[in-house]
Amino acid sequence: MSAASPTHALLLATLLFAVGMLGVLARRNLLLMLMSIEIMLNAAALAFIAAGARWHAAQGQVMFLMILSLAAAEAAVGLAIILRLHSAGRPTLDADTGNRLKG
C-alpha cells in the first residue's frame, strides 16, 4: 500500500484536528483560539480531499471550496470582533473577559 494513501491522509487529518482542539481548549488568547480553529477547518478539508482521492471523485474538492469560503468568512468576522473588543478598552485578549462588547 502506498504511503500517500487516503488512509494515511485521514490519519494526518485526525492528528491535526486533535491538535487544533487542544489549542482551542487550552489557550486563553482569542487570536490563538482563532488560529487553532483554522487548523481544525484545515483538518476537515484534508479529510474531504482524502475521501475525494479515495473514490477518485471531484466532489471532495468542491467541498474543499465550501470550507475555504466558510473559513474566510469566519476569519473576517472573528478578527473584526477581536478588533472591536480590543478597541473597547480591553488590555488583554483574554477569552474569559468577553463581556465588554456592549451590543
Binding site: 500517500a4 487516503p6 491522509a9 487570536l31 482563532l34 488560529m35 483554522e38 484545515n42 478539508a45 480531499i49 482524502a50 475525494g52 482521492a53 471532495g60 474538492q61 474543499f64 471550496l65 475555504l68 473559513a71 474566510a72 476569519a75 473576517a76 478578527l79
Partner: peptide, 23 residues
C-alpha cells in the same frame, strides 16, 4: 501529493495568502 492540484493552489493563494494577511 493526494492528487488535488487545484485545491493545493487555492490553499496557497487564499489560505496562506489572503487569510494569513488578514491575521
Amino acid at each position: 501529493a493526494l492528487g488535488a492540484p487545484f485545491a493545493a493552489m487555492l490553499e496557497v493563494i487564499i489560505y496562506a495568502g489572503a487569510v494569513m494577511v488578514l491575521f
